[in-house]
C-alpha cells in the first residue's frame, strides 16, 4: 500500500516537472497558431516539422548552433589543460605558501562573478577580442572550481607512483602527461561535462561580448528571435527544443560523471 502512495506522489511530481518539456516538444510540432488555443492542447493533431525546417533554412540556426559548439568545446579544451595542471600542482607539488595560496583562491569564490563583468569587458575590448569567440573562451580557460575538483581527485593518486617515475628519470611534465592525466580521466570527464554545459547554457556573458548577430550563441540568438517573433509560439518552441537537445544528450550519456561532480563540489574542506 505504502509503495503505491510513495510511487504515486513521485509520479505526480515527475509529471509536473516534465510537463513544460512535453509542452515544448508538442507545441513545436503544431502548425502555426495551433498552440494558442483555449483550452490548451497538450498533443498536436498532426505532426508539422515546418518550424524546424524554417529555423535551419530561414533563421540561420545552424550558424548559431555551430557558434555554440565551437565556443563550448574551446572552453572545455583549454580549461581541462590549465585546470588539470593547476589542480595536480596543488595536490602533489611541495612549495612554500601552497596552503595559503589555495585558501585565498577558495575564499574568493564568495565574490559574485558579476563584480568583474565591466572590467573584464573593458580589458577584452582593449585586447580587441570583443565580438570574437575568444571573448568567451579566454576568461573561461581556468576556474577556481575546476582547480578544486582536480585537486580533490589527484589527492587519491599514491605518491609512490610519482616517486617511481621520478627514479626512472621522468621529467615533471612527462609524469603529468603520461601518468597523471590518464589516471585523472574520470574527473576530467566530470569537469569537461560541467564546463561544456555551463558554457552552452550561459546567457549573460555571450549577450554582453557578442555584438554581431552572426557570432551569437544559441541562447542569445533564441532570446533575440523571441523579441522579433513573439507571436510565433510554435517556432520559438522548436528553437528551444534544438537548444536543449545537445545538453540533454550529453547529460544522458554521462550522468554518472555529472552527479559525481555535484558530490565532490559539495565536499567542504
Amino acid at each position: 500500500m505504502k509503495k503505491f502512495i510513495v510511487t504515486g506522489i513521485a509520479c505526480i511530481v515527475a509529471i509536473l516537472t516534465f510537463m513544460p518539456f512535453m509542452w515544448m516538444i508538442s507545441a513545436s510540432l503544431m502548425p502555426r497558431g495551433a498552440a494558442n488555443v483555449y483550452p490548451p492542447k497538450f498533443f498536436p493533431d498532426t505532426l508539422d516539422f515546418s518550424h524546424y525546417i524554417d529555423l535551419f533554412t530561414r533563421m540561420n540556426l545552424a550558424n548559431y548552433f555551430l557558434n555554440s559548439l565551437i565556443i563550448s568545446l574551446g572552453v572545455v579544451f583549454f580549461s581541462l589543460i590549465l585546470n588539470s595542471m593547476g589542480g595536480y600542482a596543488f595536490a602533489k607539488f611541495r612549495f612554500a605558501k601552497k596552503k595559503t595560496l589555495f585558501k585565498v583562491l577558495l575564499s574568493s569564490m564568495i565574490i559574485p562573478g558579476q563584480v568583474t563583468m565591466l572590467p573584464v569587458f573593458l580589458l577584452l575590448k582593449n585586447l580587441g577580442l570583443i565580438n570574437t569567440y575568444w571573448a568567451i573562451i579566454v576568461p573561461g580557460m581556468a576556474s577556481i572550481f575546476g582547480i578544486f575538483l582536480i585537486r580533490q581527485f589527484a589527492f587519491s593518486i599514491p605518491d609512490s607512483v610519482i616517486e617511481a617515475a621520478k627514479i626512472d628519470g621522468a621529467t615533471e611534465f612527462q609524469i603529468y602527461y603520461k601518468i597523471i592525466l590518464p589516471l585523472c580521466k574520470p574527473i576530467l570527464v566530470t569537469l569537461g561535462l560541467f564546463t561544456f554545459m555551463g558554457t552552452w547554457n550561459d546567457f549573460l556573458w555571450p549577450l554582453i561580448v557578442l555584438t554581431d548577430s552572426t557570432k551569437y550563441t544559441l541562447p542569445v540568438a533564441l532570446s533575440n528571435l523571441m523579441s522579433e517573433h513573439v507571436q510565433d509560439t510554435e517556432l520559438m518552441m522548436a528553437g528551444s527544443v534544438i537548444t536543449i537537445i545537445p545538453v540533454l544528450v550529453v547529460f544522458l550519456f554521462l550522468q554518472k560523471y555529472y552527479l559525481k561532480g555535484i558530490m565532490m563540489g559539495s565536499v567542504k574542506e
Binding site: 509542452w23 520559438m236 528553437g239 540533454l248 547529460f251
Partner: peptide
C-alpha cells in the same frame, strides 16, 4: 541541465 533561455520561452 537545460538551457534557461530555452525553458523560459516555454514558461
Amino acid at each position: 541541465v537545460t538551457t534557461l533561455v530555452a525553458v523560459s520561452i516555454v514558461w
